[in-house]
Design a protein around this nucleic acid. Structure first.
Lengths: 339, 339
DNA sequence: TTGAAAGCGCTAACAT
DNA sequence: ATGTTAGCGCTTTCAA
């Protein structure tokens, strides 16, 4: 019944079974019209009869591009990125492309490795959240004409499409909100400055401070690595200052977890001792007590937009590098409400 | 300087540049000894000179297997799975394999689609967390001789390796813990019963109830889809019962978020009104107030073990299907401590 | 409209 | 030890 077939059926098997040539089978399968209905049906019948699946490697070898889009994200445990993936997936599927992910882990070496794999596997295009804003690593794709769209962050020196949010404005709004709630010493746990995201959130924070006439006390800024442990360490540093913050902006969700941890360990109450605003509207934000005020990003839309742009490039469209900036928004919840 | 090269260099280019044959280049690149040092150096020089990268499609076509392992997970937003991926990645890299992920989204159709892609792309092996314990969908891999290891859940009818945890025991322990804390009506938000995970956590819960002489009140069991919304709905259902639970076991982390949400909306206090134990030691577990008692799983180790098993199969080893069961453990925190 | 044939870039079997 | 050759399975001219 079930044959122990380790030798997959090829297009020639199908051709033989349908009594046509391999070329005709290929034409049918690729939706080229100019095939007689009669033959088309015989082919389709043979395909399902034999359970034929085209060999992706052979097809890629021939067409020089797999029907696959790669997404290289910088941290798979970060819910922001995983949410983005959803949006990109849906769009890609509509266009007949599949998506594979790779986790670069905020590590330039791994990122580079995955980009090389994307090149070697001849993926049609790549969505990337670069670990650093430096350009170097995407050359391997550019050299092969594989289009890239960056998300969340952009590459300062490379003319590639990007989809980001207005981080500066959002951080500014969030900081202003904390000030309006009566915080007089607003601190920030910033992300790595060599990511555009980290840098512009910090800049937005500073802008708000200046606008409110606060002076920028270096003791109120600490840097983390966008990960939980980094957030914890940064918060500890801020809280141990002789004159600790009474309001805190944390630059991403993972660091927020670490930061909240440190605040709890210090025995501080939120928001009375310290008001907190986080980035990324993680699913657990509302499960916290008090619920967390956050800057939310349109993650699904970011993914969709990135996939759109990429698919247009993939299909050969050319246009000047596009920098799409979507809108991040403050959601006020109890963790920052002091009045 | 930078040439606008859309035509990647091939092995023949390298061969020509090094003054050797393509075969020799191949031998050098694949670490076959039996190549004179002299030639080897010339080849290596030419490779880096030309920036040559082998074409993965061509190699896969020829060798009938890509140096790529696939991981098809059932929900990319679930931190349990993303943590597992880390373990698998590290192991795979050591062995020279790359890992690509796909998100099946607890959807049998998507899962099937990705398995077909894995087959079409001739991945060397696949790690899968099946959406259902039914077998059907992996045939496409088995037919091509591509080994599969399941994680978190196993396939009831397929003889494939699996790496799971002792869910039954863990759920039993967790339930017993709630009972020992004075809960007299312990409820459960169970996962889908057609996943082995969902089924055995429910069974463990019931076993603990029986052991304690509690009767199994159907009003204390609600089912969710392993996702946030499902957890929310299930909790609402339980809490609206005329005689609601005073202790609750929730079968995974995403549903826990929804459940906590519903509990908060109902104005109930944890643990005094209702004690809560969740599954999966998500990073935010300790950021909650009160911190969440959880059943933690050795996620990294699960990933490592699965990759180990898979790599052994990939390299041709044969052995009877192995079912590795690792140990899940209760971590007692304040959310369940009533005495 | 269809078939035949060439060839994508690589590896492996066969010569030498 | 190295070069030569023959495909892997597919798509795409080119003829007919």
């Amino acid at each position: 019944m079930e044959d122990d077939n380790k030798v997959p059926t090829t297009i020639r098997d199908v051709a033989a079974a349908a009594g046509v040539s391999a070329g005709t089978v290929s034409r049918v399968l690729n939706g080229k019209r100019d095939v007689a209905d009669e033959l088309r049906h015989r082919v389709l019948a043979a395909v399902s009869e034999l359970g034929y699946r085209p060999n992706g490697a052979a097809r890629s070898l021939r067409t020089r591009a797999a029907m696959v889009l790669g997404i290289v994200i910088s941290d798979i445990t970060n819910s922001f990125f995983t949410a983005v993936v959803r949006g990109a997936e849906d769009r890609a599927q509509e266009a007949g492309y599949s998506i594979v992910l790779a986790n670069a882990d905020e590590d330039l070496g791994k990122e580079n490795r995955y980009l090389e794999i994307a090149a070697a596997e001849q993926m049609a295009g790549v969505i990337l959240s670069p670990a650093s804003s430096r350009k170097t690593t995407i050359d391997v794709l550019a050299d092969r004409g594989i289009p890239v769209v960056t998300i969340d962050r952009h590459l300062t020196n490379a003319p590639v499409d990007s989809v980001t949010v207005n981080n500066h404005q959002a951080a500014r709004d969030a900081t202003a909100h904390l000030i309006s709630q009566g915080c007089t010493r607003v601190g920030i746990i910033a992300g790595p400055v060599d990511t555009t995201t980290g840098a512009s959130r910090l800049a937005g924070y500073r802008a708000a401070l200046r606008a409110a006439g606060h002076d920028d006390d270096p003791a109120l800024t600490a840097f983390g690595n966008f990960r939980t442990d980094g957030g914890h360490a940064a918060a500890e540093q801020l809280l141990s200052s002789p004159c600790p913050p009474d309001g805190l902006l944390i630059s991403n969700d993972l660091m927020t977890i670490g930061g909240l941890q440190a605040i709890a360990e210090a025995g501080l109450a939120i928001p009375s001792d310290i008001a907190v605003v986080g980035f990324d509207n993680a699913s657990w934000s509302t499960a916290l007590r008090p619920p967390l005020t956050v800057v939310t990003q349109p993650t699904y839309e970011i993914g969709q937009t990135a996939a759109d742009l990429l698919l247009r490039r993939v299909s050969g469209e050319t246009f000047p590098p596009r920098r799409v900036v979507l809108r991040a928004q403050l959601i006020e919840r109890a963790s920052s409400m002091r009045i």
